[in-house]
Design a binder for these strands. Sequence first.
DNA 1: CTGAAAGCGCTAACAA
DNA 2: TTGTTAGCGCTTTCAG
Lengths: 344, 344
Amino acid sequence: MLASSPPRVTLLDIASDAGVSRATVSLVLRNVPSVAPATRKRVLQSINRLRYVYHRGAASLRSQRSHAIGLIVSDITNPFFAEIIVAIEDWLGSAGLVTILGNTSENLAKQQRLLRSMSEYPADGILICPTQGSEKTGLPTGGRLPPIVAFTRPMDGVDYAGTDNVTGSELAVEHLVGLGHRRIAFIGGPAQLTSAQQRFSGYRRGLEKHALEYRKELFVEQLPTRQGGYHALISALQLSPAPTAAVCFNDVVAFGAIEALRGRGKEPGRDFSIVGFNNIADARAGSLTTIDTSPAKLGETAADLLLNRIRDPGSPLRQVILSPRLVVRESTGKLQHDSNESNQ
Amino acid sequence: MLASSPPRVTLLDIASDAGVSRATVSLVLRNVPSVAPATRKRVLQSINRLRYVYHRGAASLRSQRSHAIGLIVSDITNPFFAEIIVAIEDWLGSAGLVTILGNTSENLAKQQRLLRSMSEYPADGILICPTQGSEKTGLPTGGRLPPIVAFTRPMDGVDYAGTDNVTGSELAVEHLVGLGHRRIAFIGGPAQLTSAQQRFSGYRRGLEKHALEYRKELFVEQLPTRQGGYHALISALQLSPAPTAAVCFNDVVAFGAIEALRGRGKEPGRDFSIVGFNNIADARAGSLTTIDTSPAKLGETAADLLLNRIRDPGSPLRQVILSPRLVVRESTGKLQHDSNESNQ
DNA sequence: CTGAAAGCGCTAACAA
DNA sequence: TTGTTAGCGCTTTCAG
């Protein structure tokens, strides 16, 4: 049996209870200062007594602003994105906006569905980290979309907040070279990902700068996951001569690599050096040397771009690229006696 | 300058374009079968041509169903919750519902704000993992709330989907005892958390069953984080006699403990045994012996409870407790020669 | 500072 | 099978 819920208390109920009009109640609810203190007080009392709950949906319909922002990420189980989500949700929340979350799991069809569903809601705007390879094709052609801002990975035709990936991995290489390393691998980036391409090119730039020869075996492509990092490092170790250090696509890959290292009795920092990317919370706890891209800052930057875009839809396209920073911890160390070096 | 967006295409536009009434268009949009195929086709063509976008908010106002579900978690950066979120979002998405996410970071005030904001939306229902210690007081007293279901941690007065924590850690202890361990620590549970209390009591029950004495030093309370696990294990190792194995509050704590172990040159499974709790994705990748609580299944169960509660608000309170399962991997092993044993 | 009236875009209940 | 009518609960505009 369906228990019927009590009828909703509306503005009209409050208005008649307080002896004012609906418009006045609305002013009180929205904290418009032009209401006389005495009136406001009476209204507030009625609201409390009748347990009135504001109906945002109705307000949205009339005001044409839902105060909801869609947030689409490509993999919520990736701690990097989890940190971004928290930051965005906090940031938007403090601006009085609600976040509607969607996770694509790198699935383009799901991304389309989410974009559509959020447009229909309708969300006032959408923040998105596009799925791998959807930079050109990710936006549905038919149907109007609210303002959109991409983060972490760019997307054609919309604003973008990202990281200077090239400089990031260049910093990583510089650091390793400074510690005496000469054979440095780059592991874990899926070649189709723009960010991986950028990090790879920074890696090559770092090598060139020090006249170190690049060999293609040193680029071990893998999924950007813990498992990916694990397998990538095992492959890298089988090369001959083997590398003595690795720049990883991200921190999660780095942890997988460390796992592999330890499984073979090698200690990171002493026997092999590892640099991560992003500086997620676990990197701090796990003493990982990494490139700090301040995920939280990135999220806030993207949110700001979106807020501006909503305010001024006609303004020119904007890109904000944040500068990364090297954070040295214990997963990197001076090159010890290098057996391969002498053998060759 | 504010660029004015083109006026919204509404049902009325479609209706006049297709030469039917708004009601008919509405029937087509909602896939009501009673529409003549020819009419439906004409309407669909107009929809495509005019790039009409359905307005869920308007529909919600009229139908009194928003098709939005609020999801409040206590820590989104915890992979356990991330997995639950993905599962719930997928599950609800396939039922045509949108998920509105909120993260409390274990902050009661934030939880209250989120509950309010989601009620105002209004969401059709709310799924919540209450913040630590908010089981009794978590629900705001004034103001009406939509149907609510708690998961992972119970909450007074609402439906609940959880895990049999007592049996879970009992299984963990049994496993360790079977491997020859006698001094087993329990680490990382904050004592105020109901789930920690339950897991602790299962741990004690396991000890009792095998007539093993419990000593309070073996319960090392800590934050349920990687850091917490790290520090807890270091404390545990300083006991004398030191434990040879540990049951951890969750997988993340277990990884912190393993970190600490390796930092002191000990290999998990060989020199010290570790059992996690939850079986998150990283547990698989990291060869962690753990108690599988199937996070995804838990999320779906909670979602189902909520869907039922929405359908039938008057039905009696329900609790669903899922049974955990031991998964043996490589972080546990037979007790080796135990130096302390002979020394004592 | 407050009220009256109109209407946001849709669906529900009925009638035809 | 389709159309008509009336509103969901709020904000907006304009008077007063």
